[in-house]
Amino acid sequence: MTDVLPLQAAAQTRKKIFVARHALVTRVTHWVNAICIFGLLMSGLNIFMAHPALYWGQSGSDRDPAAFEIGATSSDADTPHGFIRFGDKRFETTGVLGAVRDADGDWHERAFPYWATLPGPRDLGLARRWHFFFAWLFVCNLAAYYLFGLTSGHLRRDLLPNGAQLRPKALLRDIVHHFKLQFPQGEAARHYNPLQKIAYLGLIGIVLPLVALTGMTMSPGMDAIFPWLVDLFGGRQSARTLHFIAANLIVLFIVVHLLMVVLAGPINEIRSMITGKLKILPEETP
């Protein structure tokens, strides 16, 4: 069985066919999720600007030691210097983080540039409204997906790697295929490869629930209702830090995900997530 067909040879002899690849629920929840994540990430950065420092434990504010901080020093008259700090390590980030230039060219001591935040350059009240609106939609959408994924067998059948796929040899071969940018065009494209399964399950099963639960732990009302949330994450400020880390993992996932879509054939891949049909090369000529 060939996982990866030589492109050129196959294309000349056989006709490509469309096969059913993504269920309707998968497609709808994918795009609703994409909109929510986009809104949540950008409004989240806006909210973070109000206090761009992270702590570990139950509490933390200005005079407590921060594990991470975005800041600015304005010793010079004209241009402030932006920096990020992890513990004792400081890195200059002028122009990107801490001290940024607006579209009109003016410098501002602000954690993030204007293009990275929604709904505007800096508005905590409005950004919170956006964030919680998309948070509700995100959680309902995720719940709908879980319900579908568990009842239809989608999660078990399509995303859970089987024993053979998790063997080091199989994983290594898949890693090599990814590095050589060899993506399956034939029958194998009907299914996810091991690295895809791990990435998707990691996101759906770990990172997305983590971001939702740590978000809830920041709510004083939810902490009263579910005190175990505070214990689970070791305090509200720890939960806030984990929320930020989870958001960064989502950004990392999106970067790799989009890169893979582009490399694997963006038109075919994006179309398959809209119409559900993926164009593949059949294994044998009919």
Partner: peptide, 12 residues
């Protein structure tokens, strides 16, 4: 109790 500011910080 823990006081949570809308900005993101907390103090007890």
């Amino acid at each position: 109790t823990r006081h949570d500011c809308v900005e993101g910080w907390s103090a007890i």
